[in-house]
Each structure stands twice: as structure tokens, then as C-alpha cells.
């Protein structure tokens, strides 16, 4: 019941966020070049252009046009890509699996490295490994992702020749989804891009988990847990880590957006056939419907992941459930 009330509330908030994103997206369309030039080229006379403009409703007031855009968008029609001559949403969704798998792989790397390393550094802040991890993470935070990507290509793909440097490799078609997870070639293509993408978040999360957990370890309830004679693994992994998770989840939800933004860079460097790469191509081609479709799809992904993150938060933090009902 709590969860239902919470979901309904979140759905309302999500609708508002999506409305704002759609306004921003549509304003871009209104201000980015002349759609007619993209559609008919330069050989058509000015009279025919005016006629076409009138016919397409381009002379209508902003909000009339926006309303038309919105009603279509709600039905899943985000316009037709100028370049691909196909519905923009269809083009984007065709590239979605590649980006999703890249982000998923990067997220796995972030979680499975930052959690153990962060916990270790919090428990043994003065050990050599912790100092090393802190030093490396400072470097990691400072180096931009495209540099990490280019260096990793140079070292692992060119110099050592261990891993492929670009593309997605062999994919397996599941009918509704093309996955690179199921072939060895696909997985080997995934390693470098996923590592490069995770490199931006990894240091942040290691430092965040370390800092939060060190604070929790000084708390009175952890002292009480020790006084009860519990095994250290239970004190660290249950009593301390569960409390550490709360701020980490909050930050994580926000960082998902940053991660998606960085896919544009990562996918470009590795020629990864995903949404981010497509977006950059669309910008170069002034393919306005595709740009807007990308913005709206990414906005939707962001809203959905944040709702999931908030749900996870309520599961970890018992104090939120009550306010969820009252609010």
C-alpha cells in the first residue's frame, strides 16, 4: 500500500518532469535551422516553400505547434528523422540495446569494484592499499573520459593487441533485442568501452562509500554492535554498510544521468553503435526530430531509473515509508 501511494506520487512528478523536457525539446526544434531546407533542399521555389510551411503548420503560433507535437508525442510519434526517413523513435530504439548494455556493464563494474574497495578503505584507512586507492582515484576523477578511452585503446588494442578497439562485435538477435552479452566477441568488444565509461564514476563512488562508511563506523549504534559481541563481518557489512548505502543510493540516482551523458563521448571514441553515437551524428546532420527524440527518450530513462532508485531507497531506509504515506 505504501509502495502504491509512493508510485502514484512519483508518477505525477515524472509527468511534470517529462512535460518540461518536452517543452525544452520542442523549443530546440523551433530554433534549430529551417526544417524545410532539410526536407526539400534548395531547388524548390520560395512560393512552394511558403505553401508547404502553411501546410505543415509551421506558421502557427508556438503553443499550437507545441500542442500538436505533444499530442503526437504522447502517442509515441516523435517525428520522422530527416536522414533515415524513418520514425525518429524507431531509429532511437534500434540503438537502445547497445547503449543499455554498455551502461549496464559499466554499472556492474562500478558496483562490484567501488563497494569492496570503499568498504576496505573505510575499515583500514591507513593501510597501503587504501592510500594507493585514494591516490589513484584522485587521478581517475581528474582525467577526462575521452582521454581514458583513447589511452586504453592505445594500450590494450594497439600496443598489447589484446582487445578490439571499436564497434560492438558479434551480436545475437533475440528477436526484440540485439545483445552482445551472448557471444565471446561481443563481450570482448564491451570490455574497453565499459571500463572507460565506469572510470568517471568509479573514483567518486569509492571515495563516497569510504567517507560515508568511516562516519557510520564512528556512530553510537556501531559501537553498540561491537559491545554486543557481534562478528566483525556482521558489524561492517550489515550494521555499517546498510546505513552507508542510504547517501550512496541518493547520489547514485543522480549519477545515472551523468553516466548516460558520458555515453555520448564513450560511444563516439569507440564507434559504439548506440544512442549516444547516433545523437552526435544527428547533431552533425542537424537531424532535429532525432535530436529531440533522443532528449525525450533519455529524459524518460532518467525519470524511470530515478523512480527505481527511490523505490530501492525506501526498501533500505525504514524511515521513508511512513512519510511516503503521509506525504
Amino acid at each position: 500500500m505504501d509502495t502504491l501511494a509512493f508510485l502514484i506520487k512519483r508518477l505525477g512528478q515524472a509527468a511534470v518532469v517529462m512535460l518540461v523536457i518536452s517543452i525544452i525539446g520542442f523549443s530546440i526544434q523551433d530554433n534549430l535551422g529551417d526544417p524545410l531546407r532539410e526536407l526539400v533542399g534548395q531547388s524548390v521555389s520560395e512560393e512552394v516553400r511558403d505553401e508547404l510551411r502553411e501546410e505543415m503548420g509551421l506558421n502557427d503560433p508556438f503553443f499550437v505547434q507545441y500542442w500538436r507535437f505533444l499530442t503526437k508525442a504522447v502517442q509515441g510519434d516523435l517525428g520522422t528523422s530527416y536522414f533515415f526517413k524513418k520514425p525518429a523513435l524507431e531509429v532511437i530504439m534500434g540503438k537502445f540495446p547497445a547503449t543499455f548494455e554498455l551502461v549496464l556493464a559499466a554499472t556492474f563494474i562500478i558496483i562490484f569494484v567501488s563497494v569492496p574497495v570503499g568498504i576496505y578503505c573505510a575499515i583500514h584507512p591507513k593501510s597501503f592499499f587504501s592510500r594507493l586507492a585514494m591516490a589513484v582515484s584522485i587521478v581517475g576523477i581528474s582525467v577526462p573520459v575521452f582521454l581514458t578511452a583513447i589511452f586504453s585503446i592505445y594500450i590494450f588494442a594497439i600496443y598489447l593487441d589484446w582487445l578490439p578497439s571499436y564497434g560492438r562485435g558479434d551480436t545475437v538477435d533475440l528477436g526484440f533485442w540485439r545483445t552482445g552479452f551472448l557471444s565471446l566477441d561481443g563481450l570482448s568488444h564491451l570490455i574497453l568501452p565499459a571500463l572507460a565509461l565506469s572510470s568517471i564514476m568509479l573514483p567518486l563512488f569509492i571515495r563516497l562509500i569510504r567517507g560515508e562508511m568511516m562516519e557510520v563506523l564512528r556512530s553510537e549504534y556501531v559501537r553498540f554492535a561491537w559491545a554486543k559481541g557481534l562478528h566483525p563481518s556482521r558489524v561492517y557489512l550489515l550494521h555499517a554498510f546498510k546505513n552507508t548505502l542510504l547517501p550512496v543510493i541518493t547520489v547514485g540516482g543522480v549519477q545515472v544521468g551523468t553516466l548516460i551523458a558520458y555515453t555520448i563521448l564513450t560511444e563516439t571514441v569507440f564507434q559504439w553503435p548506440g544512442m549516444g553515437f547516433l545523437f552526435l551524428e544527428a547533431v552533425n546532420r542537424v537531424d532535429t526530430p532525432l535530436i529531440i527524440a533522443y532528449i525525450i527518450v533519455v529524459g524518460l530513462i532518467f525519470v524511470i531509473t530515478n523512480t527505481i532508485v527511490d523505490l530501492v531507497y525506501t526498501m533500505v531506509n525504514p524511515m521513508v515509508r511512513i512519510t511516503g504515506v503521509k506525504g
Binding site: E220, Y221, F224, A227
Partner: peptide, 16 residues
């Protein structure tokens, strides 16, 4: 066994 000063802080907030 030990009993601490502030019962608000002694019990772990995320465990029953």
C-alpha cells in the same frame, strides 16, 4: 553488557 547514553543513537535505525 553495555548500555549507552543516547537511546536515539544506540539502536541501528535501519534494522528492526
Amino acid at each position: 553488557a553495555m548500555i549507552f547514553q543516547d537511546p536515539m543513537m544506540t539502536l541501528n535505525p535501519v534494522l528492526t
